[in-house]
Write a protein that binds this DNA or RNA. Structure first.
Length: 214
DNA sequence: CACCAGGCAAGTA
DNA sequence: TACTTGCATGGT
């Protein structure tokens, strides 16, 4: 896989869509919560859950941390897997409370690899969620891979479906591109944008996809 | 009606 | 190691 092709892909998407202004949230804490809630879930459903928490004024570390888990589960119901996600959020909040006095700034203020490893150690936080929080909430340079990334790359013969484990694909991006937070931010956002708009059909590209012929 | 969505962990062989 | 399954709501 050539670095040039990955750069060319980015340039095409950027030329076509323009800036994406990710992550769609108002605070790093909201990004972190959203990253957990969006696991295998339509973003529309996530916004329902987030807006619900917001409207009650609960989208703040200490409030969610002290909220009973059953109550949290009930409040995030619209985003699905609510019992599971309530537990996962609690796991994450507990880590930040116990090791960082609930200080999100302090938690995020560490070397990118350390932050990522600490996130991965939380039960319910896998590579994509860890990278999303690291990149979009903490602003550290790590590349976010998701199902859309794998789909688009394999569709354009940039990976084989079998060889496509998370870390090898992530390495591919990070070995080929400058470790630039703004670039990684925009690149992943553009991939999601493209997939949502043009990869609705299961196993083939749309006629009018901006990547046609790429 | 079936299928899908910005995953992850646990179970099975 | 390599599959498989559970988790769940809401939109198309």
């Amino acid at each position: 896989m050539s670095a040039d092709r990955l750069l060319e892909l980015f340039n095409r998407l950027q030329d076509h869509f323009g800036p994406q202004h990710w992550w769609p949230a108002e605070t790093p804490f909201e990004i972190m919560v959203g990253a957990v809630l969006t696991q295998n879930t339509n973003w529309q459903n996530v916004t329902k859950a987030i807006d619900g928490l917001k409207s009650l004024g609960l989208l703040e570390f200490h409030l969610l941390d002290s909220l009973p888990i059953e109550e949290l589960a009930r409040l995030i119901r619209p985003c699905g897997y609510y019992n599971l996600k309530a537990r996962r959020l609690k796991n994450l909040l507990s880590l930040i409370r116990d090791n960082y006095h609930g200080d999100l700034e302090l938690f995020f203020d560490q070397e990118v690899g350390d932050l990522r490893q600490e996130l991965l150690a939380v039960k319910g936080i896998g590579p994509e969620t860890a990278d999303s929080i690291t990149l979009y909430a903490a602003g550290k340079p790590t590349f976010v891979v998701d199902t859309y990334t794998l789909r688009i790359l394999s569709r354009h013969d940039m990976i084989w479906e079998d060889e496509a484990d998370y870390h090898s694909v992530q390495e591919m991006f990070m070995d080929s591109l400058p470790l630039d937070v703004a670039l990684f931010n925009e690149y992943h956002a553009l991939i999601v944008r493209t997939a949502k708009e043009y990869c609705k059909k299961k196993n083939r590209c749309c006629e009018d996809c901006p990547l046609n012929g790429f």
